[in-house]
Design a protein around this nucleic acid. Structure first.
Lengths: 342, 342
DNA sequence: CTGAAAGCGCTTACAG
DNA sequence: CTGAAAGCGCTTACAG
């Protein structure tokens, strides 16, 4: 690969001049400019970004750490696309890496980006209690230690509320239950996510809070654990049906779970919504094309990611951002055919 | 940030020694080793990967360029996860970047990774005729010009068959049509993808080839263009219904299209599969949870991506791989309730 | 076992 | 307008 020295020789000038031509950092006579460009062309020269970065002591790069197990998530594409777009606008290169399936995978991914001298790092935390996921404390320690800003998405860090952006899952999960209660339902079942995950715990809490708020006793038989995929929703719903507890509605951890449950209900000739009302969570676009269409809760992933990136960029530019309360995001109810008043 | 010089001073040794301790590249007395590690600890030192790479003239990094508009694709997560895993195994850092929405976005993304001295680059081509996508010729020129290996996924490059891995879309799309014909269907409709995209064109060809092969006249009225999303399938199917052409089966560009079509059929009280058989394409896992479950064609994305990464790694290691014919991948029929014999 | 020096490919004061 | 030189933070022959 041709270097700047090669170019300078071919053009009959010094390295410095080539550098200046390339960076437009000084007046250069038209003749030498042309000579330099000619040499660049002939040698097919491309600057070594590593050397540039080392020399300038800046990389203009933002690091993004994406989670594993994301092949079932429709959020991943959105996350990347928004970050890319905002990084572009800010004139930064977005360097993406994925955590690998090892202990400390998350921390190592972050460090690896910092070691490559990213100006700042955005970390998407999949769920607190994932097998190899970072604990909140480790993240907080890391934020204290790192020489560059780190913003964490999807978890709340008590010691660093201004470094994280999170969803209020409990609040969001409460919405459909409150609504069902307002429509006269009292026997409301819940198919949870994997309860070793923080997100699943919080959403279950939201369900329980709603019932408690309405003075309805929580019936443990009406709470079944799924696996956040279709199959878990399917078998959990079958369990609900088989144990013959009476219920008039089911709220689910997420949409996939609800779709699995819907299938189980239909196989058992239980009509939705005539006999059972159904709520998903996430508001994936397929819900509009199921029969019946399925109600859900919409988390504004777009606003969420945008906020996180803007927070990061603000920290980068050392803008004195007042800690925005909006770093916590809630959800909105989306009603469709799957729900009816009792 | 502490540098190696800082560490060496604190430990009372030379930079060289610190480097050797860190890299285990020479016998070092236990005493100095400890002193060095102590200094590293105290200064919270982390090597500058940029400087290392520049000095060693190697980065041990593989670049991956992912497409835009991937927020609706379930392949993106799989693509990244497999590449990450194989890169890990090969001891390489995987640097991911996304093409941005500008002319030459693809080429610029590739170049940008090469400028960062990736050892090799893997490029996922979304579709030939996307707004800003690279043309095959440009890719071939790039392969000739770049100083590092470039492997291209999802398109066929006549000049570089050994640098690309692709699906035989026409073949895959032919499978369900052949099957339907074998089951006595002759009036088979097709809801295409956006026909300005190469993939959509090829799959439509597969449909037409099957009909021709069976001596069935192609009825233009039975071919409608969708948009590869639910909504396009929905309206295309409504169009088929309204124009009252007789048909006993519908094959679709992809599963989303089929799901949209299913909704339209159900709204019109047309029974699947009693009155109309239905095929999707891609075999997304939701198909098992629809009512009825929907037949499809499975492309082995896993094998596909694995093959591409292995091809890249082989080129990196200059292994003399005989050009594998298997660089073209086909699909498999997956039959479910949505199809019946006539 | 360890250090001094040159080099990786750039940028940027400092001179002229 | 342009060049020589020092420096970015490492690695690695070359000596000893």
């Amino acid at each position: 690969m041709a270097t700047m020295l090669d170019v300078s020789r071919r053009a009959g000038v010094s390295k410095s001049t080539v550098s200046r031509v390339l960076n437009g950092t000084a007046k250069i006579s038209e003749a030498t400019r042309e000579a330099v460009f000619k040499a660049i062309e002939e040698l097919n020269y491309r600057p070594n970004v590593l050397a540039q970065s080392l020399s300038k002591q800046e990389t203009n790069t933002i690091g993004l750490v994406i989670p594993r197990g994301s092949n079932t998530s429709q959020y991943l594409g959105l996350l990347i696309e928004i970050c890319q777009e905002l990084a572009d606008k800010a004139g930064k290169f977005l360097m993406i890496t994925q955590v690998n399936d090892q202990p400390d995978g998350g921390i190592r991914a972050i460090r690896s980006l910092v070691d490559r001298r990213c100006d700042a790092v955005l970390y998407y935390n999949n769920s607190f209690f994932d097998r190899y996921n970072i604990q909140g404390d480790e993240l907080s320690d890391l934020i204290d230690e790192l020489p560059v800003p780190l913003v964490v998405m999807n978890c709340f860090l008590p010691r660093h509320p201004d470094h994280c952006v999170w969803f209020d899952h409990a609040y969001g999960a409460r919405l459909p239950v409150d609504y069902l209660i307002s429509q006269g339902h009292t026997r409301i079942a819940y198919i949870a996510g994997p309860l070793n995950q923080r997100t699943a715990q919080l959403r279950l809490q939201g369900y329980e809070n709603a019932l408690r708020g309405a003075g309805i006793t929580i019936d443990p038989l009406l709470i079944v654990e799924g696996d956040r995929f279709y199959s878990g929703g399917y078998s959990a719903c079958n369990q609900l049906i088989q144990q013959q507890s009476e219920f008039t509605a089911i709220c689910c951890f997420n949409d996939l779970t609800a779709i699995g449950a819907l299938r189980a209900l239909q196989e058992n000739h239980i009509s939705v919504p005539d006999q059972v009302s159904l709520f998903g969570f996430d508001n994936e676009s397929i819900l509009d094309y199921l029969t019946p269409t399925v109600s859900s809760v919409q988390l504004s992933a777009h606003a969420f990611v945008t906020h996180a990136m803007n927070l990061l960029l603000a920290k980068l530019n050392a803008e004195d951002i007042s800690i925005p309360e909006a770093s916590s995001f809630t959800g909105d109810l989306v009603l469709r055919q799957s729900v009816r008043a009792l």
